[in-house]
């Protein structure tokens, strides 16, 4: 009974989420903010799988994010593929990259893993910057409006209020996927490998295989966010590799608390609302974003949820996440 209620509650919440821009006034700025939040939240969920469930810091998820964007731009501009086909392309490219990088980092842990994934992002950016096929330093301009034929309808579009439907759908599918992942065999094994690797090994879990599988699973999520971002901006460039996105994903994950299903979404929303409506200039926003990231981890390593627990002193009664 409880499970059925929580499912219908989640569905109602998901449905209501679609009307957030309308409730927020329906102005173009509201649609832009909501679409951006949905896209960047999906990007963060990719990195969230690694940080929250494997306990590693992937600094290479900008590669998958950018790969999705470049796949969308390249395939639609040069080959005229529609949105479904470019999304398929983005997923395939991300999986191939994730397999390569995952195999290269199979035996690395902790900071070596982070260093190597960061190195991969640098290499990828240099290649994109110097290779004219990928637009070089100019990037790829003139990405057409998103064309997503669906039984005679076009679900896509070019403006933010047209793209909101897809951004919302993508976000909901991602949330459903993360929810399923947390209950899946892989999700449970990942958490076990993270929390107690010796126990996991003793129970017959192959830690390396689990790590590789989670890494490869996470890549297409960030890539699909990049895919939609390419259509939203009608342009992709090497700025998709910038540390802004990296710092944003990490902040979005830790701000509310790791292993919270809605955490990255709420975190992204807080950051984008600050940057779009309460901006104190580009440099000021950087200080805010970086300071929030550092302060959260220094003061409340569990995130804002930890603060909540502290305030209500209910920590002792909160059932612990089973490992």
């Amino acid at each position: 009974m409880i499970k059925r209620h929580s499912t219908s509650f989640a569905l109602v919440l998901a449905g209501l989420a679609y009307f957030v821009p309308t409730v927020a006034g329906g102005a173009p700025a509201a649609y832009t903010a909501c679409t951006t939040i949905a896209i960047l939240a999906v990007m963060s969920y990719g990195a969230d799988l690694i940080l929250s469930y494997l306990g590693e810091v992937s600094l290479g998820h900008t590669v998958f994010w950018a790969a999705g964007g470049y796949a969308a731009a390249l395939l639609s501009v040069n080959y005229g593929w529609n949105g479904w086909a470019t999304a398929g392309g983005a997923i395939v490219v991300a999986i191939v990259f994730a397999c390569l990088l995952g195999l290269a980092t199979l035996r690395t842990r902790e900071f070596v893993f982070s260093l190597v994934t960061y190195a991969a992002a640098v290499v990828a950016m240099e290649i994109a910057f110097n290779w004219s096929y990928l637009g070089g330093s100019d990037g790829i301009v003139g990405v057409p409006p998103l064309d997503l034929p669906f039984f005679g309808w076009n679900l896509g579009g070019g403006t933010n209020d047209e793209l909101w439907l897809i951004a919302w759908l993508l976000l909901m599918i991602t949330l459903l996927f993360i929810h399923r992942f947390r209950r899946s065999r892989l999700g449970i094994s990942a958490l076990m490998v993270h929390m107690n690797p010796d126990l996991a090994t003793a129970l017959g879990v192959d830690a390396r295989r689990v790590r590789l599988a989670v890494f490869v699973t996470s890549a297409p999520i960030s890539a699909l966010a990049g895919w939609l971002y390419a259509y939203q901006r009608a342009y992709v460039g090497t700025d998709m590799f910038e540390s802004y996105f990296l710092v944003l994903m990490l902040t979005a994950i830790v701000i509310v608390g790791r292993r919270m299903i809605l955490g990255p979404l709420v975190g992204t929303a807080l950051i984008i609302v600050q940057q779009n409506f309460f901006s104190i200039g580009g440099d000021g926003d950087k200080i805010v974003l970086g300071a929030v990231l550092a302060a959260i981890l220094l003061l409340w390593p569990k995130g804002l949820v930890g603060v909540w627990d502290l305030l209500t002193s209910r920590r002792a009664q909160t059932p612990r996440q089973s490992a």
């Binding site: 590693e56 902790e110 540390s243 200039g281 200080i287 970086g290 981890l297 390593p301």
Partner: peptide, 30 residues
């Protein structure tokens, strides 16, 4: 960072230093 260093909470430390770096970039250009 000392509390985190004493706990050897390396994952959080890496992310904290990324945050510091971002603050320095923004602060320096200001």
């Amino acid at each position: 960072m000392l509390p985190l260093v004493m706990q050897q909470n390396l994952t959080s430390l890496m992310i904290v230093t990324l945050g510091f770096g971002y603050v320095f970039t923004g602060g320096a250009s200001k």
